[in-house]
Write a protein that binds this DNA or RNA. Structure first.
Length: 184
DNA sequence: CTTACAAGAATAT
DNA sequence: ATATTCTTGTAAG
């Protein structure tokens, strides 16, 4: 069997539903995180068919523990070195790493992130990059909102996006736009 | 290589 | 508030 394609996964039951974390067996890098709404996607993914269930290492357990804490509203620190960057395109990698710098409790916009990666008119491309973020929660793509402060989509559903932001202390107006005036 | 998208943004109506 | 137009990185053909 191709070592590159051997995976193992673990699940975390949360108030949002079951979240699945997938690691590569060979180097214990996180290759993908599936949010509750993506259950079916996980079921039909290569990760399940080639994988084995169960967690067998400390770092993986540690991550799940941290994610559980994060979902309970606590600040957590996670190194970006634990995820697999080899399968992300250069542009997406840059966007995701930039997104990863947004502090908890703060939001940015797709356009501002585009500026930060020196692609001033690529707001939409940034949206694409975040929409296909393989590592939600670790890479906090929920902290990106539209320029009018309304919420765009989220792999786990806009509802989850809003709840995640509320956990961080972000407030919303009656039209579900973030009240923040200071963007990262 | 060309085409068709999409979690954007600015502008006009 | 909605429609139009410009924009750009990918996946698919």
């Amino acid at each position: 069997m191709n070592e590159e394609k051997r995976y193992y996964y673990g699940t975390l039951g949360s108030k949002f539903g079951e979240i699945v974390f997938v690691w590569r067996f060979a180097d214990n890098k996180v290759v993908r995180i599936f949010l509750p709404m993506q259950r079916d996607l996980f079921r039909s993914s290569e990760y399940r068919s080639w994988g084995m269930s169960g967690i067998n290492n400390r770092a993986a357990l540690e991550l799940i523990r941290k994610m559980e804490s994060l979902l309970n509203g606590n600040p957590v620190e996670v190194s970006l070195d634990i995820v697999d960057w080899t399968r992300t395109a250069a542009f997406q990698r840059l966007v995701l790493r930039t997104e990863g710098k947004i502090p908890r409790g703060m939001v940015s916009t797709y356009g501002r992130i585009a500026l930060k990666v020196n692609r001033p008119h690529a707001a939409r491309a940034v949206g694409r990059a975040l929409a296909t973020n393989p590592f939600p929660l670790i890479i906090p793509c929920h902290r990106a909102v539209r320029s009018d402060r309304s919420l765009a989509g989220y792999a786990g559903g806009v509802k989850m996006k809003k709840r995640l932001l509320e956990l961080e202390g972000i407030e919303f107006d009656q039209k579900d736009r973030v009240v923040t005036t200071r963007f990262w």
